[in-house]
Amino acid sequence: MIELKHISKWVNVGGNRVFLLKDINLTINEGTFISIMGPSGSGKSTLLNVIGMLDEFDDGEYDFLSQPVHKLKEKQKSQLYKSHIGFVFQAYHLIDELTVYENIETPLLYQNIKSSDRQAIVADILDRFNIVGKKDLFPTQLSGGQQQIVGIARALVAKPKLILADEPTGNLNSKQGEEIMEIFKQLNEDGVTIIQATHSEKNAAYGSQIINLLDGKVEKIELK
C-alpha cells in the first residue's frame, strides 16, 4: 500500500543541512497496524505528515496505492488523501464552531455526499462510538477523551483505508488512552490500516510493527 524509497527531508540552517528525515525506506501493507516510536524531535510527526501528504519531502520516491506521490500535483495529492486517509491529532483539532454531529459530517460535505446518505453514515458512526447523546454539543463542552473519540469518528466517517494518528493519546490520561487504543485495535481488525506515532511503549505494543526512529533515521523495525 505504501512504499517509501530513500525518503529524505531537510532544512538549511546557516549553511548547514539539517536532516529531519534521512533515507527512509519503508513498505507498509494494507491491514497492518504500525507504531512509530522515538524521542522528541526524532522525526515521527514529520514522517506521518509526509505519509499523509501534508508535508513535502526533498528527496526519494513515495508510492501510495501504486500512485507516485512525488510526481503528483498539489490538487491530485489532496484528492488522494481526501479519499483514502483519515487524520487523528494529539490536540484533537475539532472545529470549535461546529457541533459534534457537524464535525463528523464535514468530511462528507466535501465529498458531495447526499444529505440523506450523510445522515445515515453519521448516525451509524455516532452509534458505533456511543456518542449519540453528545451529538449536539460543541467540542469545548466535552472532555479530552470524548473529543478524541469524536476526532477518530471524524477521521473514519469517510471510510478511509488508512488512519494516521499523531500521538492520539498524548493529551489523555491512561484510562482514556487505553480506551482509544482499544478502538484502534478494533478498527485494525476490521481492516483499516493504522499508523500511529507515540511515546508510550504500552501503546506502541498495540501495533503489529514498531518502527523506531532516531534523528530522522529508521533505527530498527520490530515485528511482533
Binding site: S83, F87, H93, I95, E97, P107, Y110
Partner: peptide, 16 residues
C-alpha cells in the same frame, strides 16, 4: 487559520 487548516486536512478544497 486553525479552522482553515483542519478543513483542508479533512478534505475541503480551497474554493469551498
Amino acid at each position: 487559520a486553525k479552522e482553515v487548516g483542519l478543513r483542508k486536512v479533512i478534505g475541503s478544497p480551497r474554493n469551498s
